[in-house]
Design a protein around this nucleic acid. Structure first.
Length: 579
RNA sequence: GGUCUGGUAGUUUAGUUGGUUAGAAUGCUGCCCUGUCACGGCGGAGGUCGUGGGUUCGAGUCCCAUCCAGACCGCCA
């Protein structure tokens, strides 16, 4: 038997017991006449004690050990003569009477400690050492807890976990597919699923009624801190439901997970239309942890010969409370921020609302004190506040304003880690114009149904059609996205035609689902959560998911531990008909 | 496809206007140390300054190219 206890469970009440522990050497403290070893496993750290006067051979043996050696120790639990209140096992130590070396270790390339000296690159290359560190291990355990809570809730609501295939057919819509060459069908390829979308709909046609799966998805697109080429979704679908049913069911799931994993009671999710999200936050995933809404002032700033505002399609302001004392340096920084190519604003106009009731702006040449007072009143700006104004094309300016708002939120400490502000964003447009391909594209996916009252717009104004689509957003992060689906062949064909697929193409690419819709497809809808994101938000409220994935890829899609992707054997290439 | 930041000891990094032997911390290592827990004290080893080219009397430092890493834009239904 390698161990009778783990390294995190012994307490003062165990004093006197003879125990066997196995684990890794975290650190050795040799005081000459005394030697301490911190022994670590997944569960914690326990101090071992060796007194050379009693066990000189053991002392000589242990002295030669180094960090990360794997040992088994037999000894007696006893109260420490000087306790350590910072450790849960700090009241006791194990007085070693025998130690077996199970495996030696070379010196690790970085320290296995909470605050490691290792850079990201090294940590990824030696991920198996990184996972020995407490913070990383905790994240993986948290991920397990989130998954467990999800399954608990879904099972309780009668959802059935059904597996769907990974080797499927490439489709033209959406992200770029990862493909797998077929040996038995030379020259042809499987695609890895971007999501099990069509399968879950077919399971509804099949009468499974309530389906879910925690499932890997694959998209061959460029990566970000919060995006991996393979990632995990909580994929869900229900039959005989309308939008309200889906919203209630999955709001319940998010609340259950927060309660179960963190003990946090989320209040009911507010709902906001896509149009309002853009109007008030410049963004379809608003961070509601702070106000600072966008205020449109396009018309009231016109007519003062300030050409930028006079010519602008859209001008908007945000009010930063108690920032009127911002220095020239601060304002220059903000100007630089919005003028960065990624944001792309032409410039930044400010109005300081001084505490004495006067106004100072960067456009004093064009605007009188009364003009500025009028703008301030429109923005409900108080003395001591600072108004920041951007101007230009509506879409681009809203986007820039959204970035500026988030930046100010960061600077003012308004995006507090401990706050959680979820919401539903509703009524997304069904379609968006693809400038490159000169055609309409499904905004969510081409199986999304539309508001019946907007159906007449499908032909004359497709961009105005609203979808039965919804997102869960928490703290400015899109956590989940779903829709009520089309379940009728004619409507599905109309959708395909609208996004530029000919009937022949539609039949070739999606014939299976069109056919299925003719065999009594029930009304259905669902949602899919980004599971990795969910974990990072619930446990740490971070917009960084790699720490929640055991073996993630780097920003070029490489696995630096395996050094994948790699070349393959020539013979394998031949078998696959590749050159 | 594009923009930006970085690459100096095992690791994390400092390095001024281009100028003597590239400095520190940590890790490693030797000796000392009987209650440590980031133990402590004294000593030691450890560097092709990512790579290639160029400018210069002289390059870690300036220029060009390239590789790697990270962040972002495009992209991601």
């Amino acid at each position: 038997m390698y161990r009778t206890h783990n390294c995190g469970e012994l307490r003062l009440t165990d004093a006197g017991k003879t125990v066997t522990l196995s684990g890794w050497i975290q650190r050795i403290r040799d005081l000459g006449g005394l030697l301490f070893i911190d022994l670590r496993d997944r569960y914690g750290v326990t101090q071992l004690f060796i007194n050379p006067e009693q066990h000189n051979a053991l002392y000589q043996q242990a002295k030669a050990y180094g960090r990360e050696f794997v040992i088994q120790v037999i000894g007696k639990v006893s109260e420490r003569s000087s306790r350590n209140p910072n450790m849960v096992t700090g009241d006791i130590e194990v007085i070693a009477s025998d130690i077996n070396l199970l495996n030696a270790s070379i010196t690790p390339p970085f320290t296995i400690e909470d605050d490691t000296d290792g850079g990201d690159d090294l940590r990824m290359q030696y991920r198996y050492l990184d996972i020995r560190r407490d913070p990383v291990r905790k994240n993986l355990l948290a991920r397990h807890q989130v998954a467990r809570a999800v399954r608990e809730y879904m099972d309780g609501k009668g959802f059935v976990d059904v597996e769907t295939p990974f080797l499927i057919k490439s489709t033209p819509e959406g992200a770029r597919d990862f493909v797998v060459p077929s040996r038995l069908n030379e020259g042809q390829f499987y695609a890895l699923p971007q999501s099990p979308q069509t399968f879950k709909q077919l399971l509804m046609v099949a009468g499974m009624d309530r389906y879910y799966q925690i499932v890997r998805c694959f998209r061959d697109e460029d990566l970000r801190a919060d995006r991996q080429p393979e990632f995990t979704q909580i994929d869900c679908e229900m039959a005989f439901v309308d939008q309200e049913d889906v919203l209630n069911m999955f709001e319940g799931m998010v609340k259950h997970v927060f309660k179960s994993v963190r003990g946090i009671n989320l209040s009911d999710f507010p709902r906001m239309s896509y149009a309002d999200a853009l109007k008030y936050y410049g963004n379809d995933k608003p961070d509601l942890r702070f106000g600072m809404q966008l205020i449109e002032i396009t018309e009231i700033v016109k007519g003062r010969n300030f050409k930028v505002f006079d010519d602008a399609e859209y001008t908007a302001a945000i009010v930063a409370e108690n920032c009127s004392e911002y220095t020239r340096k601060h304002l220059d920084e903000l100007t630089e921020f919005v003028k960065r190519p990624q944001i792309g604003a032409g410039g930044l106009v400010y109005i300081r609302c001084a505490t004495d009731g006067t106004y100072k702006s960067s456009v004093d040449k064009f605007y009188t004190q009364d003009d500025l007072k009028n703008i301030a009143a429109h923005c409900a700006c108080k003395p001591g506040d600072l108004i920041l104004i951007l101007s230009g094309k509506q879409h681009k300016t809203r986007k820039a304003m959204s970035e500026l708002r988030l930046e100010m939120g960061n600077r003012l400490g308004l995006r507090r880690k401990e706050d959680y502000k979820p919401l539903w964003v509703l009524d997304f447009p069904l379609l968006e114009w693809d400038e490159d391909d000169k055609r309409w594209n499904a905004m969510h996916h081409p199986f999304t149904s539309w508001k019946p009252e907007d159906e007449s717009l499908m032909t004359d104004n497709p961009g105005a059609v609203r979808a039965n689509a919804y997102d869960v957003v928490i703290n400015g992060v899109e956590l989940a996205s779903g829709s009520i689906r089309i379940h009728n062949r004619a409507k599905q064909e109309l959708m395909f035609r609208t996004i530029g697929l000919t009937d022949d193409e539609a039949r070739y690419k999606f014939g299976f689902i069109l056919n299925a819709f003719e065999y009594g497809a029930p009304p259905h809808g669902g949602i899919a959560f980004g599971f990795d994101r969910f974990c990072s938000i619930v446990t740490a409220n971070l917009d960084y998911i790699r720490d929640f994935i055991a073996f993630p890829k780097n920003n070029a899609g490489r696995d630096v531990m395996l050094d994948a992707p790699s070349d393959i054997d020539l013979r394998l290439k031949n078998d696959l008909g590749l050159k």
